[in-house]
Amino acid sequence: MTIAFTFPGQGSQNVGMGKVLADTFPEAKAVFEEVDEALGQKLSDIMWNGPEETLTLTANAQPALMAVSLATMRVLEAKGLDLKSSAAYVAGHSLGEYSALAAAGSIDVATTARLLRVRGDAMQNAVPVGVGAMAALLGLDFELAAEIAEEAAQGEVCQAANDNAPGQVVVSGHLAAVERAVEIAKAKGARRAVMLPVSAPFHCSLMAPAADAMSEALANAEISPPAVPLVANVLAEPITDPADIRARLVEQVTGTVRWRESVLWLAGQGVDTHVEVGTGKVLTGMVRRINKESTGIAVNTPEDIDALIEKLGG
């Protein structure tokens, strides 16, 4: 069994996430307290009590999802998990890349929380509300979806933003251009093409102001080589050098999340098990669609944690 630890992105959040961990394990509680202190905000209260619309705000959802992932990791470590000896790689979907780096000891939790707050604010503020949009094109391969985005642009921005799994591509850009992409996709045989309820057009060139903000924030952040290599979203290949990590985290803001290719690359290296750490099962669902030979394990609950430790022989 060769393992990659993976970390979910925005959309996996839900009110109440992490509360059972905090109530059960002091190691988890300590992570939530550390994140609250780093942000100067009782983010944990929003996570556990809502309201949902406040948790869903990009500036809250991003550090919140990271906090749950890292709380889960700390409990696993307290029960004997050593990431370096257990996993060959880490990877994360969009903001999950920050969680992956924190889990691998590349960036400390407090710094990661502050970086994600900057990232969330910058991504939200990069484009006025209503100017941008995203849409899921289902049933089309990535190459066709990218061609559709290019055709739909017509002088505006429309890019393939997320290559999530076979037949699951998200496009991002100006509202009118994304709406055109939906209609073109339907005409070209998409199983479904739907606008997504997101607050900004992530992972396209409209996010350039946010990339600039992250370049500045990351320049001052202390980053160490991770305990195991990070498979970077924008490369679908591993990196370990701190300067390379900084550059790719900046590129990631406007670049395509190459998740399908990342999972296939990992499969090519013999990775057969993907452990999704944090909240939800989005990545676990994608793994089987990308490579039927791979197993996905979602670790969300105390029972999941115990099951994983047992599976690893702990």
Rank of each mutant, 00 (worst) to 15 (best):
M1Y: 10
I3M: 11
T6S: 13
T6L: 13
N14H: 09
G18F: 01
L21Y: 06
L21S: 04
D23C: 00
D23N: 00
F25Y: 13
A28Q: 04
K29G: 05
V35W: 02
A38L: 02
S44G: 14
S44H: 11
I46G: 07
I46N: 03
W48Q: 04
W48N: 11
N49I: 11
N49A: 12
T58Q: 11
T58L: 12
A59M: 05
Q62H: 09
P63E: 06
P63I: 05
A64V: 11
A64I: 09
L65I: 15
M73I: 10
R74A: 13
A78H: 07
L83T: 10
L83C: 12
A91D: 07
G96P: 05
E97Y: 01
A104Q: 13
T111R: 09
T111L: 07
R114T: 14
L116V: 15
V118G: 04
A122N: 09
M123D: 09
Q124G: 13
N125T: 13
G130E: 08
V131F: 05
G132Y: 03
G132T: 05
A133N: 10
A136T: 09
A145I: 11
E150A: 15
A152V: 13
A153Y: 07
Q154V: 10
A160G: 14
A160Q: 04
D163S: 07
V169W: 07
V170R: 00
V170M: 08
V170F: 04
G173W: 02
H174M: 04
L175A: 15
A176Y: 09
A177W: 08
A177Y: 07
E179Q: 15
A181Y: 14
A181Q: 11
I184M: 06
A193W: 06
V198F: 08
S199T: 15
S199I: 11
P201Q: 03
H203C: 01
C204M: 05
M207Y: 08
A221T: 05
E237M: 13
E237S: 15
P238Y: 05
P238Q: 09
I239G: 02
D244A: 14
D244M: 03
R248L: 09
L249W: 02
T254F: 00
V257H: 04
R258F: 02
R260Q: 15
R260P: 00
L264Q: 15
L264V: 12
W265L: 05
G268V: 07
G270H: 09
D272A: 11
D272P: 15
V275H: 00
V277Y: 00
V282D: 00
V282G: 00
R288L: 13
R289E: 11
N291L: 09
N291D: 15
E293S: 12
A298T: 02
N300H: 06
N300V: 14
N300Q: 14
